[in-house]
Design a protein around this nucleic acid. Sequence first.
RNA 1: GGGAGCAUAGCUCAGCUGGUUCAGAGCAUCUGCCUUACAAGCAGAGGGUCGGGGGUUCGAACCCCUCUGCUCCCA
Length: 928
Amino acid sequence: MSIGRKSDNALIFITHHSSFITHPFQLKSSNFELPPPLSPKITCFATRKTWIAMQAEIPKNYNPAEIENKWYQYWLENKYFESKPNPDKEPFTIVIPPPNVTGVLHMGHMLNNTVQDVLVRKARMEGKEALWVPGTDHASIATEAKVVALLKEQGINKQDIGREKFLEHAFEWKEKYGGIILEQLKKLGASCDWSRTRFTMEPDLSKAVIDVFVDLYNKGLIYRGVRMVNWDPQGQTALSDEEVIHKEVRSKLYYVKYELENGQGFLTVATTRPETIMGDTALCVHPEDERYKHLIGQKAKVPLVNRWVTIIADDYIDIEFGTGVLKVTPAHDINDYNLGIKHKLQVIDVLNQDGTLSEAAEIMVGEDRFIARKKSAKMLVEQGLLENEEEITNSVGTSERTGAVIEPRISMQWFLKMEHLAKPALEVVENDIVKLHPPKFKGMYRAWMENVHDWCISRQLWWGQQIPAFYLSDGTIVVASTKAEALAIALEKHPDLVKSEADLNQDPDVLDTWFSSWLWPISVFDGFKNPDNADINYYYPTNDLITAPEILFFWVARMIMAGLEYKKEVPFTNVYLTGIVRDKQGRKMSKSLGNSPDPLDLMIKYSADGVRIGMLLSSPAGNDLLFDEKLCEQGRNFTNKVWNAFRLVKGWEADASVAKTELDELALNWLRSRINQALAESNDLFTKFRISESLHVMYKLVWDDFCSFFLEMIKPVFGQPISAQVLTETLDLFDELLRFTHPFMPFISEEIWHQLKERSEGESICISAYPSGKEVDQVLLDQVQVLVDEMLIPIRNHRNANQISPKTTLEGLTISAKYNWASSYFPLVQKLGNVGSYSFAETLTGQVFAGKRLEWSLPKEDKEISSEERQKLEAELEYVKGFLVQVDQKLSNERFVANAKPEMVEKERQKKADAEAKIAALETVLNG
RNA sequence: GGGAGCAUAGCUCAGCUGGUUCAGAGCAUCUGCCUUACAAGCAGAGGGUCGGGGGUUCGAACCCCUCUGCUCCCA
């Protein structure tokens, strides 16, 4: 533009060549680094940029690392996140879904905790007494595995040191390494009240678990029963389903002959596990299987042990598999076990804990199960009972840790009856007392709650709350919170069996970790120990729970049960279910696949704000998020955009003598209305937990409306000052925008908020008021939109199509006189479209631009309309003509006119008029 | 085997009570731009028979039936 500027550039360029190091600009700049001079062109470029940056004294690119640490410290020091019951304020409470104490931050946590932080920060700014309670759960299985592995490295065996010593090690481990994840959450900006951090194994919470067990036992809801578990014979422990890896292996299918009674011959059974034959207690066929129908109810002889068993019928049997006859071994197969219950079969457990054959097997006692398999096959051959052997591939479960083949094993476990607890927990969801977001999960919840199984609450581990059940010498069970209490009860009820605590044997098992977590919303407020304390009375029930749909049953449903049972009140009113974070190919992120990025690296690369926005941008409620690092990049770019808007505004020199223009006034009024409109939309979306969409509203408001449109409207000509009044009003609106963005991007909003205006000590955006939407001038918004759509964009297109530089001012624009309302908005077109003079006229000449709501023209160029442009216009004409035909058809359809709502018919008439006008206008343009 | 969902632009998804704010957003792509806040940017553009078929209706992405293909939960 100005010659002076160009010569500045040239000067720098030359200076660079001669003496880069001593360049005066570089000396002045202490914190801005110049890139090395790679080539004259790059050097020149970088230097010019540098010069601009220095002018503003704010770095061109937002530099988050230092800023984020600084503000997090500031927030902690000022205790903004700490909460106390305050009767003057409405409470807003979230309890964190306690992450596994051994865990490190993964993408799922990032999403989940970002959502929680957005909600809690917004509530805090809205003047509520906001509390987000953090903590971890003790994760029995995962933690015990870690500690066992660590001890093993030191040559220590868990069994050798005993329970007490082991727990000492475990607690030591937890103190040292546990809860890293909570530190990581701070990087994300999580506004938890850290002074309230809880842990499910701490004494108070453990006591709650034990007391609840005793209480439920006394209510008759807890019982002992058998259950099939995944047994690792090498590790000698039960494993959860998650710890079993299924592998395809080649094995043999043995066809074994069972002799029928009364000399009717043999019944052949196909099995992969002949070593369990000794545990057979029935044979089973399909009731509709013509081959065997006549044998149902008869007896067959189990080979090797020569025991007679009954042939039963069940439609569970797959007629196609093997021979269609199943040997039923209830002790060693989960399906057989269920059959056994259904048909009341005997259970013969032929295996020991270490995988060798037990006394019950009668033969090969003490042999390993795999050797026994070969031996039994051999014995069957010898006795002429092996008809055939076949190679097959089948799926075998193996231990994640030892690699040993898992043995399904029945064992004694503790169960909690669900029926009584599940019924009210279903009702509150059905009646929307607890609302699930999105509501599609209601169906899933119902299905589960109506078919709920009793909850197996015992685990064969040491790390956890040991089950408070004490066995007397004759097997009698006494359940009490402590050994002393148990002794007292035992002395009273069974004085013959008990003298001292030494006569009480506590059950070695611990309780399932969920049995701690289901009490979480109550126990974090000491609601069991001290049921009427100020915290629980104030904060319970909590407001929102944010978690993953995969634990809707494991955790959410059970918390509702516990809440209703122990507080007679639901634990929360809203449950927001986030999606599962997957990789681009839709695979679940997992350690073994190595497809998960490290969230901390991401935050270093894109800033915490950037990652937060990235996570939320594409995570509609309940839909899985196919994570792509590009999302974080987009988030970072957004923060950078805001940063640069700030740089621009900050760089303006205010002058009180400069008057506010008509355009300034228009721009300010327009932006106010837009902000209020966006706030209303956003708030509405928040109530529906459409957080991602709410972010989109904010994103577009800031980027498109504030940066691309508003700032361009009020931007002073380079080098000239801005009206002081306009700047003040702009800063106020910027402030409001920052408060709007704060829940989504807490760090950068805080930083800019402080730089925007003088703030006093102890002030923070995170406790400032959330903007409250005021009235919206809809007419203003609509009319500006018309000008943009039908004038500004066509002007820019016209420039593109005709290679007219944005710097060339367009003159002689004429607007159809019937649209004279447009004059009050015209200054914005003049500025953003670089248009000079304009006038109104009854008839338009020259190049006519006909929109639906506006018609105007430019003086006709000498040249003809380009063929490309003509083609476009012709296509448009065709389209509108086709459209008109459709509208006409509709209007000539008597049934439409008769049945449709009158306003619908009126709309169609309007469409017809619009289309006709547009056709006329287009024809004018095309024909001359 | 039983249940719960999903299918809309190349990708990820909106689309609420059936009707021009109904075919939309972001990303990606293409075109033109180093324009004195931002190339992490600016100004534009193209792109979809709403999974297939049938029905209800004056009118269907939307309601009903059916088929196909995916996902999850329980077994």
